[in-house]
């Protein structure tokens, strides 16, 4: 279950990075174009493009294990979700709109820390796949001594 403060954090234009691994335990890093937590706070949906996340998708299909780290660039407040794949499906209209909204929020965050807007706008966020993940664990990841503690 995602705690309320983490639930709120996930919807504030956070940077979303995704960690998976293959059968030989070789890790893979990727970026997702947005994260949406389900109302029941038991699962999240992340948006990945095939081009950027080929190996990540392969790993997810193979073993379903995933780590997702979300950080708000302006204050480094961060969390890590551990989970297991539920479904992979093409993003629908509502997903595309959600992802576009996340992209706008994320650009605002980045511009606030000095990243030029045109660079962030040039990211290729679609066509995306919507990946639903059952969240099994949540960890604090804000830098400092408390990082890594289970929520």
């Amino acid at each position: 279950m995602i705690p309320p403060q983490v639930f709120d954090l996930l919807h504030t234009g956070v940077s979303v990075i995704v960690g998976t691994r293959d059968s030989s335990l070789m890790p893979e890093s990727s970026r997702a174009w947005g994260i949406r937590a389900a109302r029941d706070r038991a699962s999240v949906t992340i948006f990945l493009t095939e081009a950027v996340s080929q190996q990540t998708l392969r790993n997810l299909r193979e073993n379903g294990l995933v780590a997702i780290s979300c950080t708000r660039p302006t204050d480094h407040v961060a969390c890590q979700l551990k989970g297991r794949l539920r479904t992979i499906r093409p993003a629908e209209q509502a997903d595309r709109e959600y992802s576009a909204g996340w992209h706008r929020d994320f650009i605002q965050e980045l511009v606030a820390i000095g990243v030029p807007a045109d660079l962030c706008e040039a990211w290729i966020t679609g066509p995306a796949l919507a990946i639903e993940i059952d969240v099994t664990e949540v960890f604090h990841q804000t830098p400092g001594p408390g990082a890594g503690e289970k929520v």
Partner: peptide
């Protein structure tokens, strides 16, 4: 300037990902 994402994997197969400044 921009933190890097670093993923690792525990021996039991659990992936981990974090930002590295």
């Amino acid at each position: 300037i921009i933190p890097a994402a670093l993923s690792t994997c525990a021996q039991d197969g659990t992936p981990n990902i974090t930002f590295i400044s």
